[in-house]
Design a protein around this nucleic acid. Structure first.
Length: 535
RNA sequence: GCCGCGGUAGUAUAGCCCGGCCAAGUAUGCGGGCCUUUCAAGCCCGUGACCCGGGUUCAAAUCCCGGCCGCGGCACCA
């Protein structure tokens, strides 16, 4: 090794190429390997249990979907088990939304995620109460019935060991616990704290609250109403369930790092083994509204068209915008499990989506802000053009019949400049015309020739167009940050065959999802609404 | 402020644990070209990164120290 290193670089290189070329080849092979998720620590096939534990206070968005997708992916990778668990133990400040349970299930299904078991924490209250008793009996928890400021005073002065409630006997604690359950205390009057290192360097960890009282008379729970007044906090419920349900690997965002440490005190007390935890950074999606609070505000204010508003980074919003589950999955897998935050650029997501939908998106001609063009001198009475829906020829075709000797078509106003700069223009898939005049609201043209070669010879631009007869109105909704732009246009007659949810490519505009097909009483298509996805 | 975690091209990521196959890979973007009845797709070429400074070592993206920057937590939320 030393010998080789002492050689000049050129010499080393030559030696490598001549004598050890196999090294270079191995390297190439390694690069060709398909990219997958890194292995889970301590995982064995058939023995991995992961879970997704959303709070059903709102629909899930790309950020929450990440742990769901990753957890599910690992379950599949190790042929394990994947659990869906609703964490709805705060009827007061994060009141569960009754419909959110089902919205979340649907979003997961749409993402292609299947869960083996489902749990709802508000239905497991007796289990948590049981744990509370065991914690008290083991001397690991105590009832704190003093006002909050007293506890904080002791804690902040580093005198938590001497905090009187902490010194209570097991019997006394058990007794007070039963009183809590019986409803003797009201909100704020008593909590159950888990004993931790009283001088833990992070004060937020010291003797954290495991149960508190919530007046469910005032704040009824959507599932269990006012049946319970003593509610476990996240750390208690989640920590306990992860053990009880046999979870082996937890994947969650880094805001939970301190929680892991809190929960470990419960595990230690009860002699449980804490699952492996993988934390990852936060996800931002450029150009979308992602914050749950903003999302909720817009949703509740009715400003948004629903939880699936195309400006939202909710799973439903992304779906409505025309993103596929496969694209979302690929994106999440690509981002992986890094600690650092990631800002996903819109073009990146779009690129992934495009590669998936391009082969199956029918090409449809639409002109936005239409300008009429009178074409004269057409040398036929009527002529039909059969145009494939996709250049790959696999999606069938439609026929456009152009009447002669003169007819009116529409072109996009945005193409006017193009028309001004060119004498000859090719109407895509049809024939070539010569522009004779361009007014603000009318263009006149003469039939020039038929062939594509002719168009090429003249360097004619190729534009999309629609016939005046038979075309149908289309509204293209273009989301841009907080705004939605509504662009009006005309679509070719074949647009009548579009289906709701279909992903199409509006030629020379971009990909879009068909959001609505509006018809009259007799079932005739009157108008199409599309949502712009991306270029 | 206190506690914790990170910093690889415009964006996202591989490599870091276990220093040498790294002259840093891939995707996307961007620029150019080819092809094409779309501004889509495809093909080719190019572009562009190890936060900074020290140290250890024959050898540092990788290990150590310091700095800078960013993020998370500090609830009777999850």
């Amino acid at each position: 090794m030393r010998e080789v290193n002492s050689l000049p670089l050129e010499e080393q290189k030559r030696l490598l190429e001549e004598e050890y070329s196999w090294v270079l080849e191995t390297r190439k092979k390694r690069e060709e390997k398909e990219k997958t998720l890194p292995p889970l620590p301590g995982a064995a096939e058939g023995r991995v249990v992961t879970r997704f534990a959303p709070n059903p206070d709102f629909a899930i968005h790309l950020g929450n979907a990440r742990p769901a997708i990753l957890s599910y992916e690992y379950k599949v990778m190790y042929k394990g088990k994947f659990i869906l668990r609703f964490e709805d133990t705060d009827p007061r400040t994060k009141t569960p939304l009754p419909e959110a349970y089902e919205l979340i299930r649907r979003d997961l299904e749409w993402l292609g995620i299947k869960w083996d078991e489902e749990y709802i924490q508000s239905l497991r209250m007796p289990i948590y109460y049981d744990i509370a008793r065991r914690l008290i009996e083991n001397g690991c928890a105590y009832i704190d019935d003093r006002p909050g400021h007293e506890y904080r005073e002791y804690r902040n002065k580093g005198m938590l060991e001497k905090y009187p409630p902490r010194l209570r006997s097991v019997e006394e604690n058990l007794d007070l616990w039963e009183k809590m359950l019986e409803g003797v205390f009201s909100e704020g009057e008593a909590v159950l704290r888990v004993k931790t290192d009283p001088n833990h360097p992070d004060p937020s960890i010291r003797d954290w609250v495991a149960f508190r009282i919530i007046d469910t008379g005032k704040h009824p729970h959507p599932i269990v109403g006012d049946k319970y007044v003593v509610w476990p906090t996240y750390n208690l419920a989640a920590g306990v369930d992860d053990h009880l349900l046999g979870v082996t690997h937890i994947l969650r965002a880094k805001e939970h790092m301190q929680n892991t440490e809190k929960q470990k005190y419960v595990y230690e007390c009860l002699g449980w083994k804490y699952p492996e935890v993988i934390h990852f950074g936060r996800l931002k999606l450029e150009g979308f509204i992602m914050s749950k609070s903003t999302l909720k505000k817009l949703y509740e204010a009715g400003t948004a068209s629903g939880i699936d508003d195309p400006r939202f980074a909710t799973i439903a919003g992304l779906r409505r915008r025309g993103f596929t589950a496969e694209a979302i999955r690929k994106l999440i897998l690509e981002v992986g499990v890094k600690y650092t935050d990631a800002s996903i650029s819109f073009t990146n997501l779009a690129a992934i989506n495009r590669s998936i939908i391009d082969p199956m998106a029918r090409r449809i001609m639409v002109v936005l802000d239409p300008v009429p063009m009178l074409v004269e001198g057409i040398p036929w009475g009527e002529k039909s053009f059969e145009i494939p829906y996709h250049p790959n020829g696999r999606l069938g075709s439609r026929t456009i019949t152009v009447p002669g000797p003169s007819t009116t078509i529409y072109v996009s106003r945005s193409d006017l400049d193009l028309l001004r700069g060119a004498k000859i223009v090719r109407l895509m898939e049809a024939f070539n015309v010569e522009i004779t005049s361009i007014g603000v609201n009318e263009i006149k043209a003469r039939y020039h020739s038929q062939g594509l070669e002719e168009a090429r010879k003249h360097g004619a631009p190729i534009i999309q167009w629609v016939l005046a007869g038979g075309s149908i109105p289309i509204e293209l909704v273009v989301p841009e940050g907080l705004d939605l732009y509504h662009k009006m246009g005309l679509a070719e007659e074949a647009a009548k065959s579009l289906r709701r949810d279909e992903l199409v490519q509006l030629v020379r505009i971009g990909f879009a999802r068909i959001d609505a097909i509006e018809g009259d009483e007799r079932g005739n298509v009157r108008r199409v609404v599309a949502i712009f996805s991306h270029e």
